[in-house]
Simulated scan of single mutants.
Amino acid sequence: MLNGMEKSKDITALFGQRIKALRLQAGLSQEAFADKCGLDRTYISGIERGVRNPTLEGIVVIAGGLGIELVTLFDY
Rank of each mutant, 00 (worst) to 15 (best):
M1N: 05
M1L: 09
N3D: 15
G4Y: 05
G4A: 14
G4T: 12
M5E: 12
M5Y: 03
E6P: 04
S8L: 12
S8W: 06
K9L: 14
K9A: 14
T12G: 06
T12S: 12
L14W: 04
L14G: 10
F15G: 05
G16M: 08
Q17W: 00
Q17D: 10
R18C: 07
R18P: 07
I19C: 05
I19D: 04
I19V: 15
I19N: 10
A21P: 11
R23A: 03
L24H: 06
Q25T: 14
A26L: 09
L28D: 03
S29P: 03
Q30F: 05
E31W: 01
A32N: 12
F33I: 02
A34F: 07
A34Y: 06
K36S: 08
D40A: 15
D40F: 13
Y43L: 10
G46M: 02
G46V: 04
I47E: 03
E48M: 01
E48V: 00
R49D: 05
V51P: 00
N53A: 13
T55Y: 00
T55E: 01
T55S: 12
L56C: 10
E57Y: 11
E57R: 11
G58E: 09
I62E: 07
A63C: 08
A63Y: 01
G64T: 07
L66Q: 02
G67I: 03
I68M: 08
E69L: 03
L70V: 04
L70K: 08
T72P: 00
Y76Q: 13
Y76V: 07
